[in-house]
Write a protein that binds this DNA or RNA. Structure first.
Length: 887
RNA sequence: AGGGGCAUAGCUCAGCUGGUUAGAGCGCUGCCUUUACACGGCAGAAGUCCACGGUUCGAAUCCGUGUGCCCCUACCA
């Protein structure tokens, strides 16, 4: 064994083991009715995306759950795949085209679409390949894609079905219109920027009496030609008399009504709001509500159109604004202009302000779909982890709006609607129709728009299994067991999947939903490109290894919430990997290369520390499984860490040094057998979190009769707690001994005794305690550097000694030359104070008759015991303090 | 504005159905290169559990109120 081997060489091992796993095909699952399935569908990343830290966390969590279940014997299938990501992909391809001076318009729709297909074929698997580097045990043979023929078929089927069922309709809605590109852009392509403008106040005169008027406040005076009402709050005393009357639009004199709506804030502006339904999203809603007419006053390029008076017609909207203000001033209709900063939507492509514009869009009626989706959660059939997200889910579903599913893009599933050019009939079909089903004309024109990407995503739990066909895969793997995703897409995705699965299959798409945390930087800011605070997970894997990355992700991942992290946090993972690796080197040093098998241990051969270890091991196994069951993954990992490092390495391995003989074959020693048994258990329960490290070590271990042997650790039995080691009594004894050891060490350290110097120890305690100590003396001597242990019944301080009190004992260490009376006096007096405080509070508690009467008997007894114990300690401490002060 | 959440050691957080001498990791201090590991070991220091009220024999834990942060949704003419 050399120092060189103390580093786990993850780079070569990761490559080697990944190949090994692929060759073994252990991540692939076929329908097997004899085995219980456990299926997970990946939240499909965009084809355009590169693996970011959020993906890293999300997929590590899924992989851990899948690997854990796989080792429990489930037939696990984790379905990987990607999303065609309408806008993102279209933008990437357009950008690439721009470099060669082309545009999508110059290519034409069909060629552009093919360019997108090409781009996906070349680049679309990047992110999935990156997941492999993290060690994700997806069923890679089943990779799916939302634009695959079968999945596209599902999309069409769903559209047609919902259309036939009357749940899809066409309606008017405002889109984000880019007047430069003359196209609608999606919400994602809009940047909201704050602009310093003005709030313009001007008069709308009453039709019946021009001496009376309302003053409206607006940031966009040029849209006034599209006004179809002025709104005030119904309770606003100032304007009550105006409600129902008509006012005139300035400069044109067109008459519009004054309406009442509680949307209007009385304390903002003047309390009078001009309503321009065709140019403002809120006005649009008010317009719909009050059945106002919609007047579009601009052309597609943002110039004023024929609905406007001559003096602004064909002027650009911002030039028109100046002209309007000028004329208002001239006609004495202008009141004032207050400086006002407000948020304006800008197109992130052309960088000009968006002009809302009414247009025909397709919608899904959501009210009927929402009810059942809520019921599943209400009844507890669908569980959210953490539970709080129920509130968010309900809040959205209770206030659900219809879903606009059409997008003005070229990349995506084109809407399967064909308008008959002859009779105007609206045709639909899973297959492209060749003729109008109403008049038989072949002059059909397909709707230009494509479907929202989420319209294929909401079918993701179904479509990769061949749905709507009734396939074997579908009936076996659907519904999946758990969805792991971010809480930001609870509406966009989670709720909609529930709706689709219920509507089409009357089933839930998954049983549990686990919302993973959001990763932020140390200041709590979202990681983003613009802030430059991103962490590249692949860089982390390169630097620290996949296991360290995985361990760190989940150790920091509470249920929900946020994780504040930076790259240095991965050092923790790296250190833990290193620790386990070295523990394996230690253990393997006690057997020879030829040791293929290690004999079993029997209960009566086990010493107290071994029994305590087995007991704690089993408790840990129980805790890990319980935590995984509840998706408390960081708790499972914490339990694992604590047992491995603090119990196993710091105590069990240290203790074993007194029983094992270095440089020899110890395979017949039951202590070693128990250690190997537990260590293999550690590898097994750590395998889902750190698959590479554990697999690598596992192959080196001699076989233990208590563990069945498989070809790979990834398909080996996961430990379960079955009360094989009910050594609670021994464990309690050993805990007391650990406490004695710590007390001695503490005393020695405070006296400054060098670790190599052995000193005797005198322990004052009762007989039963001294029996325990005698049975453990060899370990106490070794771990606390004690050369001789003796016992005394009385509280008498051996010469030149320091003491420490504990539960049921006092240890004296004669430190001789190292004794420093001043230091010791200080230490004892502060100890006295500490214990005194506890004694006081316990006495106070017990002198309260209410406490004695009302608190449970057990608590009272406990408190009494505590008091007794602490009083004893206090006596010892103060007696010794006095003695030292007398000197 | 509406909805949700958080406030515990210098930092990140545990503390689940009230009873612990309030914990962990990182960081910090001291000692130690003892052949698994210095990416280590041992021993330490460090907390008016945000504030104020209430319920209770007993509150970090339950209930009000206030303060301060954060997230989501919608954005105000």
């Amino acid at each position: 064994m050399s120092k060189k081997d103390s580093h786990f060489d993850f780079k070569t091992i990761e490559q080697k083991l990944w190949r090994f796993w692929q060759e073994g095909q252990w991540f692939h699952a076929e329908v097997d009715k004899k085995k219980e399935p456990f299926s997970v569908i990946i939240p499909p990343p965009n084809v355009t995306s590169k693996l970011h830290i959020g993906h890293g966390l999300n997929n590590t969590l899924q992989d851990i759950l899948v690997r854990w279940k796989r080792m429990q014997g489930y037939n696990c299938m984790w379905l990987p795949g990607t999303d065609h990501a309408g806008i993102a992909t279209q933008m990437v391809v357009e950008k690439a085209l721009a470099r060669t001076g082309q545009t999508r318009e110059s290519l034409g729709r069909e060629n552009f679409f093919n360019k997108c297909v090409e781009w996906k074929e070349e680049n679309g698997s990047l992110i999935l390949d990156q997941l492999k580097r993290l060690g994700c045990s997806c069923d890679w043979k089943r990779e799916a894609y939302t634009m695959d023929p079968q999945l596209s078929k599902a999309v069409r089927y769903v559209f047609c079905k919902l259309f036939e069922d009357g749940l899809i309709y066409r309606g008017e809605r405002l889109v984000n219109w880019d007047p430069v590109l003359k196209t609608a852009v999606s919400d994602d392509e809009v940047d909201n920027q704050e602009v310093k403008g003005h709030l313009w106040h001007f008069k709308y005169q009453l039709e019946e009496d021009s001496s009376q008027f309302l003053v409206v406040a607006t940031t966009r005076p040029e849209t006034m030609f599209g006004d179809t009402a002025v709104a005030v709050h119904p309770d606003d005393e100032r304007y009550k008399n105006f409600i129902g009357k008509n006012v005139r639009i300035p400069l044109t004199g067109k008459s519009i009504q004054v309406i009442a709506d509680d949307y209007v804030k009385t304390d903002f502006g003047t309390g009078c709001l001009k309503i321009t339904p065709a140019h403002d999203p809120n006005d649009f809603l008010i317009g719909k509500k009050h059945k106002l007419s919609f007047v579009t006053v601009m052309n597609e390029d943002g110039t004023m159109n024929d609905h406007c008076p001559n003096f602004v017609r064909n002027l650009d909207r911002f030039v028109a604004r100046k002209e309007v203000i000028k004329r208002l001033k001239e006609q004495d209709l202008f009141v004032e202009a207050k400086p006002y900063a407000h948020v304006v939507p800008f197109s992130n492509r052309s960088k000009v302000p968006i002009e809302p514009r009414p247009s025909k869009q397709w919608f899904v009626r959501m009210d009927k779909l929402a009810g059942p989706a809520m019921q599943y959660v209400e009844k507890g059939e669908l569980k959210f982890y953490p539970d709080v997200y129920k509130k968010t889910y309900f809040h959205w579903l209770e206030n659900i709006q219809d879903w606009c599913i059409s997008r003005q893009l070229w990349w995506g599933h084109q809407i399967p609607i064909w308008y008959c050019q002859t009779c105007q009939y609206v045709n639909t079909g899973v297959e492209d129709p060749s003729s109008c089903s109403s008049c038989g004309s072949s002059d059909l024109k397909q709707d230009e728009d494509v479907l929202d990407t989420w319209f294929s995503s909401w079918l993701w739990p179904l479509s990769p299994f061949g749905w709507p066909d009734k396939t074997e895969d579908l009936s076996y793997f659907f519904p999946s067991n758990v969805l792991v995703t971010g809480s930001d897409i609870i509406f966009l995705w989670v709720a909609r999947m529930v709706m689709a699965s219920h509507y089409f299959e009357q089933k839930l798409p998954f049983k549990d939903v686990y919302f993973n945390s959001m990763i932020c930087d140390k200041q709590g800011r979202k990681l983003s490109k613009t802030l430059g605070n991103g962490i590249d997970p692949l860089e982390v894997v390169d630097q620290y290894g996949a296991d360290a990355a995985r361990y760190t992700f989940v150790s920091l991942s509470p249920l929900g919430g946020r994780i504040k992290m930076d790259i240095s946090d991965f050092e923790n993972g790296s250190r833990f990997i290193h620790k386990i690796w070295n523990a394996s080197r230690f253990l393997l040093g006690y057997v020879t290369e030829e040791t293929k098998e290690i004999p079993d241990f029997s209960s009566e051969d086990l010493d107290i520390p071994s029994r305590s270890m087995l007991y704690e091991y089993e408790k840990t196994v129980a805790r890990i499984n319980r935590s995984f069951d509840n998706y408390q993954i960081n708790e499972a990992v914490e339990a694992l860490f604590h047992f491995v490092w603090k119990s196993f390495c710091d105590w069990s391995l240290e203790v074993s040094k007194t029983s094992l003989k270095s440089g020899e074959d110890n395979s017949q020693n039951p202590v070693l057998s128990a250690l190997f048994y537990v260590f293999e258990g550690i590898l097994r329960f750590s395998s889902p979190v750190m698959p590479y490290l554990t697999e690598e070590i596992w192959h080196k271990l001699p076989q233990h009769p208590r563990w069945p042997r498989e070809k790979s650790l990834v398909i080996s039995l996961y430990p379960k707690a079955d009360n094989s080691f009910s050594y609670e009594k021994d464990h309690k004894i050993w805990q007391s001994m650990q406490s004695v050891i710590t007390s001695i060490r503490s005393v020695r350290t405070q006296a400054g005794v060098p670790p190599k110097v052995k000193l005797p120890g005198v322990i004052q305690c009762d007989d039963s305690f001294s029996d325990k100590i005698k049975s453990c003396s060899r370990w106490i001597k070794s771990l606390a550097a004690v050369d001789d242990l003796s016992f005394s019944e009385e509280v008498k301080r051996p010469k030149d000694s320091l003491l420490s009190t504990g539960n049921g004992y006092t240890v004296f260490v004669p430190v001789g030359q190292y004794l420093d009376f001043d230091k010791e006096e200080k230490r004892l007096s502060s100890e006295c104070q500490r214990v005194q405080k506890i004694v006081f509070s316990l006495e106070k508690k017990l002198s309260n008759t209410n406490f004695i009467d009302r608190a449970p008997q057990e608590i009272v007894e406990n408190t009494k015991d505590q008091l007794l114990n602490m009083t004893k300690q206090l006596e010892t401490l103060s007696a010794n303090l006095k003695a030292i002060q007398a000197k």
